[in-house]
């Protein structure tokens, strides 16, 4: 199933929540919509689901215009941030909700419910009340409920954000495996870049209602388009005219990003160690490069440090390969 968003707009009184979004989702692909809170990514998901009317623009499913279709006719599955499990129904009734609307026979419903429960690893939970479930279990049931009617597209609205860190990490991997197995087209909304990079092959970065960049995850990480995207993705070594007055001749024009993971701590570029912070196995070095007039932050395992004296004030020789430098566009 391929889904195409063509120039979607949604404005509220003062804000342009979604401001001309065009993107395509190939069949079986998972696309992450990544952006800070308030960037319009949840609104965009609600437009796709049909929960909010579109102001302007069109939605196509396999070439068919579904812009005017009501949510119940779109055959999309959605997992809500707060799961929205029906409190008056038990687990099995929740999962079978969509099957009842489709008019499935009781035995077929029962079979499908059991199938999904085993898929999400909650076999035998049919008769539980949803209030008795833990957050992680509720999340899995919400997923099973969305998947039960075999939706064309699965929409996930920050499904892991209400869980604690450890659970989030393990469910993230489970979810990844599930999406890979099912080969379902999915859109995953999140503000967490590690979730986006784990779950999706392609990532769309959203800001102020617009898609700033849509790219394969590796490409996005290596070549963020603008300073803002680079910073949002967590890159530390960014050099702009505003922030680096002292920066002199860099190998690339500013603004630019230096991928410190490609920088080796042995080479002939003279640098001075300004600070060393060690946290367990990991360590972080602040290195000043006099010829460029910049400070760069290097993170890595402590065992990668060169032998001998490594302490603040000491000179260090660096090797910075050409591909470590990536020029960026303005836009902060």
């Amino acid at each position: 199933m391929s889904l195409k968003l063509d120039n979607l707009h949604k404005h509220y009184a003062e804000t342009r929540a979604v401001d001309g979004v065009t993107v395509e989702l190939a069949g079986g692909e998972t696309l992450a919509l990544l952006g800070p809170s308030g960037c319009g990514k949840s609104t965009l998901l609600r437009l796709i689901a049909g929960l909010e009317p579109v102001d302007r623009g069109n939605l196509y499913l396999d070439g068919e215009d579904i812009t005017a279709l009501s949510p119940q006719k779109r055959k999309f599955g959605m997992v809500f941030q707060d799961y929205a499990l029906f409190p008056h129904l038990n687990v099995a009734q929740n999962i079978a909700f969509g099957l009842v609307e489709l008019g499935w026979a009781k035995p077929a419903q029962r079979q499908r419910v059991a199938e999904l429960l085993s898929l999400v690893g909650l076999k035998g939970f049919e008769r539980r009340r949803v209030q008795q479930l833990s957050g992680g279990q509720q999340q899995r049931i919400a997923l099973a409920r969305a998947l039960a009617p075999q939706p064309e597209v699965l929409l996930l609205d920050e499904p892991l954000s209400n869980l604690d860190l450890a659970l989030r990490e393990s469910l993230k991997l489970d979810l990844k495996e599930l999406l890979d197995t099912l080969q379902i087209s999915a859109i995953y909304v999140t503000h967490d870049q590690s979730e986006a990079f784990t779950l999706a092959e392609r990532v769309a970065v959203m800001r102020h209602g617009r898609l700033e960049q849509v790219a394969d995850r590796d490409h996005l990480f290596k070549h963020p388009r603008t300073v803002w995207i680079a910073r949002f993705l967590g890159h530390k070594n960014l050099y702009t005219r505003v922030h680096s007055e002292r920066a002199r001749e860099l190998p690339v024009p500013m603004p630019a990003l230096l991928h410190s993971e490609l920088v080796k701590l042995s080479g002939d570029l003279p640098a001075e160690l300004r600070a060393l912070r060690q946290t367990g196995q990991m360590c972080e070095l602040e290195l000043f490069v006099p010829s460029w007039g910049i400070t760069l932050l290097w993170q890595g395992f402590a065992r990668e440090l060169p032998g001998g004296e490594v302490s603040p004030g000491k000179p260090v020789g660096l090797h910075v390969p050409e591909e470590a430098w990536v020029p960026l566009e303005e836009g902060t």
């Binding site: 689901a49 049909g50 929960l51 009501s70 949510p71 119940q72 006719k73 779109r74 055959k75 999309f76 599955g77 959605m78 809500f80 707060d82 929205a84 029906f86 409190p87 909700f97 969509g98 009842v100 609307e101 489709l102 409920r145 969305a146 009617p149």
Partner: peptide, 22 residues
């Protein structure tokens, strides 16, 4: 939460079905 009605709609329930089922 209005999310309950929305979830029901996405699962294929029209307005009257949402009224009677949710």
């Amino acid at each position: 939460t209005p999310r309950l009605r929305e979830a029901a709609a996405l699962l294929g329930a029209g307005p009257w079905r949402v009224l009677f089922r949710i």
